[in-house]
């Protein structure tokens, strides 16, 4: 059990995504070890840590992509608004639609920008028409990308630059009005200018939604999120308000990592 000082919650915060003793094991190796973590509603939480520390596994525990991988064993629980995400009898599809995911790889689906953004709605059986167009426009406006992408709407998304593609992905993740956004290093492959555009879009979105942002970029981790969780070798080392973690880390490993001594 982590010391309460390492696992604080502001008074008034409502826990939205909760990990309770969450352990993931694959091929005899612990990917995540006994994670206890509460992600407050409507906040941006950064997950930092060196490669292989379990950031992506934590995200794929929430969108249940982990469930499709062979040889993965889990114990403990993950809850979204108190609904269990794992265990017998969970409704995989309806749970997946409560989250939106953006990956590091700035890949988009084949087809136009419109099709990419509308993809989750098309899966839900929406038919092409003004209603769908409005939803696509609203999603793009919600990340302030409408003006950038409106002329590209019916051109192949693959022809866009990486930053624009990540905006498309962000809009796609947001179009279904998910409760939680899961961003797996969305700016990992972008240059600083594109990163800034995507970060601004992210801030536009975050007001209403819970965002879990895995990142290698410590500068990004220090400027965007409300909270930072530091993971190391599948364990949660430290979790707290961004300023506090960056200025007064409570663990030596956190300090070492944040000051660039490893990782």
């Amino acid at each position: 059990m982590i010391h309460p000082a390492l696992h604080p919650n502001d008074p008034g915060d409502v826990v939205h995504v909760e990990f309770r003793g969450w352990t993931v094991r694959s091929a005899g190796r612990d990917l995540l070890r006994w994670i206890d973590l509460g992600i407050p509603k409507g906040r941006i939480v950064a997950l930092v840590g060196p490669a292989g520390s379990g950031k992506s596994v934590l995200l794929s525990s929430v969108n249940r992509l982990l469930a499709g991988r062979p040889g993965v064993e889990t114990s403990g629980g993950v809850f979204l608004d108190k609904d269990p995400l794992w265990g017998r009898g969970v409704d995989d599809l309806s749970l997946k639609r409560r989250t939106g995911t953006v990956f590091r790889d700035a890949a988009v689906l084949p087809g136009s920008v419109h099709r990419n953004v509308a993809f989750p709605l098309l899966l839900d059986g929406w038919k092409p028409g003004p209603r769908l167009d409005d939803a696509v426009e609203a999603a793009l406006r919600s990340i302030s990308a409408w003006d950038r992408l409106r002329d590209h709407l019916h051109r192949p998304a693959q022809g866009l630059r990486a930053g624009m593609r990540q905006l498309v992905n962000l809009a796609r993740a947001a179009v279904g009005q998910p409760e939680v956004l899961l961003l797996d290093e969305p700016c990992g492959d972008l240059d600083p200018r594109e990163t800034e555009i995507v970060e601004r879009a992210l801030l536009d979105l975050s007001g209403s939604r819970t965002v879990m942002l895995a990142t290698h970029n410590l500068a990004q981790a220090s400027r965007l999120p409300h909270r930072v969780a530091f993971l190391l070798d599948g364990k949660l080392e430290e979790y707290g308000p961004t300023d506090r973690v960056f200025q007064r880390p409570m663990r030596g490993s956190t300090e070492d990592y944040l000051s660039g001594r490893f990782g």
């Binding site: 997946k96 639609r97 989250t99 990956f103 890949a107 689906l109 993809f119 899966l123 992905n169």
Partner: peptide
Amino acid sequence: SWREIARSCG
């Protein structure tokens, strides 16, 4: 990545 995107969209 295309399959991952599609799966993540449910």
